[in-house]
Amino acid sequence: MDINEIIKPENLVYGKSKVLTDTVMHYCPGCSHGVVHKLLAEVIEEMDIQDKTIGISPVGCAVFAYKYINIDWQQAAHGRAPALATATKRLYPDKYVFAYQGDGDLASIGTAEIIHACNRGENIVVIFINNAIYGMTGGQMAPTTLLGMKTATTPYGRKAELNGYPLKITELIAQLEGTCYVTRQSVQNPGSVRKAKKALRKAFENSAQKKGTSFVEIVATCNSNWKMPPIKANKWMEENMFPFYPLGDIKDR
């Protein structure tokens, strides 16, 4: 069969979401952020909530998320996205409000904001990208950096005596009464991407039902700062990150 007979509009089975802009993402090749952005756009399009969704972008690599997903965006100070999301949701209870944060943003400088927003049970969605390293600033230790992992500020590997332990913030968040859905997902292969999308959709639906805070962690890679090609980084993540940050729903009520 000739390719041109297949490539016809009626045969389209997967195309770019209309909620994504045409701007080329600044992320490095193979970066997990791009996949998560795409899933968010698809969920927003499928739920038909583009006009009702307000996103809060963090400080870190995802600071420019507003360039890629065509919705209204606020760009927060480092770690403060849950505070912006809290006010936005309380002032517009009928909108869908999500905070998109990395590990340094959410689990280090913004620990107070995320804990208290989740504990208040704000009807928001939190998307937490955990790649165990600071991407934007050049690969320094994150709160979630694994023991032994080499980063720019742990050049001989993270040591508990010197640097403390990697923080399982998602397990901590799951303990809070205000959260209704806490899950850990990944996006390194087609199966995991589809699961992550379902989790995101559920999180947005929860927010409409005013069930409390939905928290979706995505265990992710940072090829550039892990100093690995994308495929190797995915494998490293599966072998090293997943045992410490196991995938699956931690809380669902």
Binding site: A76, A83, L84, L91, A112
Partner: peptide
């Protein structure tokens, strides 16, 4: 709303003012 800190309060203002 009673926030968890002044840091959070002002950032709630940031979010609300954006709206």
């Amino acid at each position: 709303l009673q926030a968890e800190s002044e840091t959070s309060s002002i950032n709630m203002l940031y979010g609300g003012a954006c709206c």
